[in-house]
Design a protein around this nucleic acid. Sequence first.
RNA 1: GGAGAGAUGGCCGAGUGGUCGAAGGCGCCCGCCUGCUAAGCGGGUGUAGGAUCAAAAGUCCUACCCAGGGUUCAAAUCCCUGUCUCUCCGCCA
Length: 435
Amino acid sequence: MLDRNRILKAPEEAARAFKSRRVDVDLSGLLDLDARWFDANREWESLRERRNSLSAEIGKKKRAGEPTEELYAEVLRINEAIEATDLRRRELDAQREERWLHLPNIPDASVPVGEDETDNVEIARVGDPPSFSFSPRPHWEIGSTLGILDFDRASRMSGARFSILLGAGARLERALISFMLDCHTTPRSHGAPYRELSVPYMVLPESLLATGQLPKFREELFHVAADDLFLIPTAEVPVTNFYRGEILEEADLPVKFVAYTACFRREAGAAGKDTRGLIRQHQFDKVELVWLSSPESSMENLELLTRDATEILERLGLPYRVISLCTGDLGFSSAKTYDVEVWLPSQGRYREISSCSNFQDFQSRRAQIRYRRSSDRKVGLLHTLNGSALAVGRTLAAILENYQTEDGSVVVPDALLPYMGGISRIQPESISSRP
RNA sequence: GGAGAGAUGGCCGAGUGGUCGAAGGCGCCCGCCUGCUAAGCGGGUGUAGGAUCAAAAGUCCUACCCAGGGUUCAAAUCCCUGUCUCUCCGCCA
């Protein structure tokens, strides 16, 4: 949610921001509604003030044994006015709240202005795409041939967009998760290690409201209706909600969490996109980084967070590039986002494998996560950031494709060898006549 | 799932329907005192919104004692519902 005072003070700044995001917002309508709520609220407060003082007077008179009838009458009259005003105040507040919650974040000044993904700006390109003496095959073909990936049986049991890993494939997935978690929980040159969290996969609606998935993106979420719980679309939700409603000490910032979870997305708007392979699944694994930062250092911290994500790719020897999303392509809650894209030889292009964002105080205002400044002991909203490091399924796909060989086997990257139980090359595996 | 108990400030904990944003203690902060530390002494110490103000401080108003309803002129206090926690029993990976 946006800072109400900031918008009231500079509505034209917000209008520009929404325009650059290509979202249509009736800002003057909202401000008008907000003003009517504000007036109703003030009216209600002053009526309460009058009522409270009369009630106190009744108490005094009663103790003194004086008559109170005429005061009763007045209070009853005021109470009617209070009730009427309260009704109006609540109605306006609900309308106003609903509209505030649908406003996207304002992009940071450093975000490139642009219409859509074609205006995103490449920041860095690291590693050379491998060259093959044969035409590289897509990961689903490699995996199926090796007998470590099974989409057919997955769809029989669960429908479209699910997958099953077998043998060395399952092992590779587990190795990646362990490898990523170990990297992030180990001290490094540019900062303290992350603290690992293991969190619930189902959350209450208010947790999703806090991080911005609700109310606007309900159709993207799996909902367990009987209990009104949602499956998490990303670990960002439970991890960011860890401190919801709390006030931290500035000395404790930044807080750095890493969590591995499964993620669940309905992919409602992606019909027909990436229908084959591991790129777009209803359920996928991800290792997520979350920072709670002081406002002053959140932008530098976004750089550090992104570096932690790309470091995984470098250690795995996967070519990647980093792009800065333009205003038109920026996510709803984000003020600035770097996407990290990995090279997929079969597609001959880079595909998103991580998205690192600074939400500034957009989520923390919804979540009421605050901190107390050391200097003056004042309380303020902190900044939240997060990024994938990395999406496990896509990493696995990238390894299969970048490390494939002409004979169909796949070489295990050196960094993963300690986790693979002696497997250094994935060969076709078949444990029976039914691959 | 059954039975019972509970939910108050950073923590512990009191609170007869009006003078309660809430005693007392701990913690924390500031000061005094003392070779240092500890102890002792004095003071301060919730959040949000609003009014006043050039601004800050200060003062004042409104709300918040798990949440939502209700009773009442008046609710932390009485009633109802929900949520959560704890104890016992049952079931269970």
